[in-house]
Amino acid sequence: MIDREQVLHVARLARLELDDQEVARMVGELSDVLDHIERIGELDLEGVAPTSHVVEVANALRQDEPRASLPPEVALGAAPEVEAQGFSVPSPQA
């Protein structure tokens, strides 16, 4: 189960604007899915190690050797707004 307040809180964390309709739908749909998922709560998992990754690759490192960077016009090429060869954003203080 998840309620409207929780949905709004999670949406804020995820930086998602949801309109009223989306919020209402999300409450129902996420609750359904969470009810299904919560069945794993019944399993006895005492002492079981978590798996974050199935392959254990150790020390897959890179030598400290410079490689060519992108030309700035390519780096900035897909940016929605460019100013002074930088990616323009509204000021965090605005």
């Binding site: 930088g86 990616f87 605005a94």
Partner: peptide, 12 residues
């Protein structure tokens, strides 16, 4: 002044 600026640019 930072608090008066409307836009910022990011340099990576």
């Amino acid at each position: 002044r930072i608090h008066e600026s409307r836009a910022s640019v990011v340099d990576f």
